[in-house]
């Protein structure tokens, strides 16, 4: 399955199985030692099939990437754009249909030299209304040292990185827990604009997602009440949430950790 395209860079190993075509995208065909390179994994699902978010919800599985890189090179975690909600049978899951581009950042060591081969094994689950299939694809690309050049995928890679939800530092999340409910309070500079926006938990097994969790504005703050996940064990220690929709132009992330 490895497709080494001689001269340069974009790999074209397409996973035929698993109801998705997968490709490795790079911003440039070159690298500078010590400087991060933006890359991405593009998943194109067959019609009617969908793959999963970092928190897949019930009955899903997140897409994973395992890298094989030259000595000293590092790859960050796959990152995930805001998903959509899928409801099927008794399940609620989160993911993507059609196409999704999952950003990842790769870092060569300061002493890197010569042509570098980046190889990655992507594994995923895709489901439609009736069944699920797993897929695996092994992709690779070569990078040579030199000044940046905009490859054919540069725009797609940049767009995927720039549209990723990020932590909103102007937003403070507080969590209060009672026997059956978890109350979320958002305050800070940007909280007033959150009324009508929706919350999805990035942390698994804390909030019950059977019902949509909507934020209601309350002057300068926004509040939501969620049921406790039936799989939560013990008191909530930390929670990371994605906030999207409503008047928000771009999804944001808020994080809370219990004080010790």
């Amino acid at each position: 399955m490895f497709a080494l395209l001689g001269v340069a860079f974009v790999s074209g190993a397409f996973g035929a199985e698993g109801r998705a075509k997968v490709s490795l995208l790079l911003e440039s065909s070159t690298y500078k030692p010590g400087a991060s390179i933006r890359a991405a994994i593009r998943m194109k699902y067959d019609d009617g099939w969908h793959g999963y978010w970092v928190n897949p919800g019930e009955g899903g599985m997140r897409t994973e990437a395992v890298w094989k890189l030259p000595a000293g090179w590092q790859a960050g975690d796959l990152e995930f754009p805001a998903p959509r909600r899928f409801e099927s049978g008794l399940l609620v899951s989160f993911g993507y249909e059609d196409e999704v581009v999952l950003p990842v950042t790769i870092r060569p060591p300061s002493g890197a030299d010569g042509t570098a081969e980046l190889a990655v094994k992507v594994t995923w689950l895709a489901c439609n209304a009736n069944s699920c299939e797993t897929g695996t694809a092994e992709l690779s690309a070569n990078l040579r040292p030199g000044p940046a050049d905009a490859g054919p995928d540069a725009v797609a890679v940049a767009k995927a990185h720039e549209s990723l939800p990020s932590i909103d530092l102007g937003l403070k999340l507080d969590v209060a827990e009672s026997t059956d409910a978890i109350r979320l309070l958002l305050s800070g500079a940007t909280a007033a604009s959150l009324s009508g926006a929706e919350i999805l938990p990035i942390t698994e097994q804390v909030l019950d997602t059977a019902k949509r969790i909507e934020l209601r504005g309350d002057g300068s703050t926004a509040r939501a009440i969620a049921a406790r996940s039936p799989y939560a064990s013990g008191p909530v220690r930390d929670l990371k949430i994605l906030i999207f929709g409503g008047k928000l132009r771009k999804p944001v992330i808020a994080v809370w950790t219990a004080s010790k």
Binding site: E58, G59, M61, S88, G89, L90, L91, S93, C127, A129, N130, S131, C132, E204, Q205, P230, Y231
Partner: peptide, 12 residues
Amino acid sequence: AKTEPYGCGVKY
């Protein structure tokens, strides 16, 4: 006694 089941959705 209760864990999160993982798998493919039952098609009711």
